[in-house]
Each structure stands twice: as C-alpha cells, then as structure tokens.
C-alpha cells in the first residue's frame, strides 16, 4: 500500500492562527482542506511538509449565502458537492456550478473544497508521479531536480493549471478573501495566479483563502466546457469558461478564460472583446475562438497528443460561447 510519510497534523482555532502557524514553520508546514489534491501528492512525495495545518473544520470557512447586494459568498471549506447542490448558484452562476460538478468524481467532490480547488497544484506528467518513478525518469525542476524535462532549454516550469473552477471564477469577476497572521485582504481571483508552474500563485504560502465572493451579476450568463478523456475522474486537459451579458440580442460584455493550457488560467481579453456589440453569429464565434486559441501552446506533459489539445482549444471556446449564449 502506498503510504504517507510521517507528519504532525494541527487543528487551529481560526484562519489567522492557521496562517500564523504556517508562517512560523516557514517551508515546513502546509495548509490542508479536503486533502484530495494534497494527500496523493504527499504519498508521491511531491511535497514533504512535516506539519499539516487543517482548515476544513473551521466554521468561519463554511459560509454559503447570498450577500445583501445580490452577490454570493462561498466559504473556502464548502465542498464542490455542496456547490453543485446550491440553487442560488445554479440560477445565477451556472458556469461555476457546472465547473464544480465536472471536477474529478462524485466521492472526491464530497471531500474536495472550493478553496482547495482554487489553489490546486499545477500538473505535469513528469511530476505527478511517485518518488520511485521520478527517480527512475530523472527528477525535474519542480521537485528534486534541476532541469525541466519537457522543455529543458530554459529553467522554467510549464506545469499546467488544472483547476476547473478558477477560470469560471475569473470570468465572473470573483474575489477571494485571504487571511494572514496580520489580517485579511481581498483580491480578484485573477490576480492569484502567475505564469510559473512552480510558483503558480501570488498568494503567500501561509495565507488562507477564507471565502470566495461573486459580485451581483444580473443578466450574466456563464458556462464551462471541459475536455478530458473520460466522463469522470479526469483532470481537465483543456477547458473554457465564458461569461456574457446579452441585451436585445447583442453582447454587451464578455469574458473568456481558459484552463488546462498554461501554468495559470489564461484570460483571453482581446478575443472576448471582439464579441462585444455583436449578436451570437456562428462565424463570429468561430473567429473569436480562433483568436483565443492562437496564442495557446500546450506541451507534451499532459494526456493525449499536445497537437490535438492545441486544436481543441478553438472547439472548447466555441462550445462554451454558444452554451453561455443559449
């Protein structure tokens, strides 16, 4: 049986305390919510913390309510399954619910949290392997090694952002509240990510995401289309989140965000802007999708041929735009 290496597990009384512990044991401690991403990675020794700081038991991370202005607040420890059962979310932020319902498999969604999903580690099939495999194949830059095995030319990690919900949260202008030892700050979800497979988040390692906030979005339609081999369990190997405001048959605002194509969710600002002012005409959609897909350069570090994944981006965007516009 594949087992965990020893660690201590701490159960702080609040988010600030959790942050303080992780800050104190700099590099030694990690936050854990549902553990559905972290535990397998610990078993494969992709991270080797000696302390885990649990946060999923914290009541303050378990809010799930509409805000007075008509937005939505979701505590970071709310599970993906709870999101899929929420009627308000379903009604006003369908793309987010769709994304949550497409994450891995039903038993994992009963345990995995939305905070964990935002912070899920980037993936690469040279890295998401056991210690023994990585030792045999040669360790890589992201853990234990000194060169990238996919693109060795430069010391950069191209591991892929694989969160299904992050792109939709970005498309819907969601913000996240982060708690540190010194207090809280609220940031746009988009600003949480950066183009680096190792340091994929701008958040400090000790900062706890306490909640996610969706601003009121009367009139917004949203969708998420996910690409994966099987109808369940699999991580995205491409995904497109789209949010649109359509008035009088014309698009007046739009967002397109891609998952599974780079080390961060990719916001296709320009492509999305081409939709504005037009009706949902299939030819225009195809053009926009083409535009969104053009800069994407998948590498051979995820499932199926990367050339095929590249051509699928256009299809994903097309589907997502049409779905949102329905």
């Amino acid at each position: 049986m594949l087992r965990l290496k020893p660690f201590r597990y701490l159960r702080p009384a609040g988010a600030e305390e959790a942050a303080a512990i992780v800050a104190e044991f700099d590099g030694e401690a990690m936050l854990v919510a549902g553990g559905t991403d972290l535990v397998p990675k610990l078993k494969r020794r992709q991270m080797e913390p000696s302390i885990l700081v649990g946060i999923s038991h914290l009541e303050e991370l378990r809010s799930l309510r509409s805000t007075p202005e008509g937005g939505m607040e979701i505590g970071a420890a709310i599970t993906l399954a709870e999101v899929t059962r929420n009627k308000d979310l379903e009604m006003h932020w369908p793309g987010y619910v769709q994304a949550a319902s497409l994450v891995s498999s039903p038993p994992l969604r009963n345990l995995g949290t939305i905070g964990g999903n935002l912070m899920v580690d980037t993936r690469c099939n040279y890295y998401d392997m056991t210690y023994e495999w990585r030792q045999a194949a040669g360790f890589c830059l992201k853990k234990d090694g000194d060169a990238c095995r996919v693109a060795p030319a430069r010391p950069h990690c191209w591991a892929v952002s694989s969160s299904d919900t992050a792109p939709v949260a970005i498309a819907l202008d969601a913000t996240a509240v982060l708690a540190g030892p010194e207090g809280r700050r609220e940031v746009p979800v988009e600003s949480l990510y950066q183009d680096d497979g190792i340091h994929y988040t701008t958040k400090q390692p000790y900062e706890v995401v306490t909640s996610l906030h969706f601003p009121p979005r009367a009139g917004w339609r949203s969708s998420y289309v996910k690409l994966r081999r099987r109808g369940s369990i699999d991580f995205p190997i491409g995904g497109a989140a789209v949010a649109l405001v359509i008035e009088g048959g014309r698009i007046i605002d739009s967002r397109i965000v891609l998952s599974g194509v780079a080390s961060h969710p990719v916001v296709a600002v320009e492509a999305a802007s081409y939709l504005v002012g037009h009706s949902l005409d299939p030819e225009l959609v195809a053009e926009v999708a083409d535009h969104a897909a053009k800069p994407v350069k998948p590498l051979d570090n995820a499932d199926l041929a990367y050339t095929w994944r590249k051509r699928m981006v256009k299809w994903l965007v097309t589907q997502a735009v049409l779905e949102a516009g329905k």
Binding site: N125, W133, A136, R229, R230
Partner: peptide
C-alpha cells in the same frame, strides 16, 4: 512508454472506462 519509461502507471493516467463512458 516514453522510450523505456512507462508513461502512465496509475489508475488516473491509464484510462479505463468509467460507468458514464
């Protein structure tokens, strides 16, 4: 395989049909 290295020695990466497939 990638050369002689098994490419997907796990139940996630070695794809087998799930009930919905």
């Amino acid at each position: 395989y990638r050369k002689a290295m098994p490419k997907q020695p796990s139940m996630l990466d070695y794809k087998s049909l799930t009930s919905v497939d």
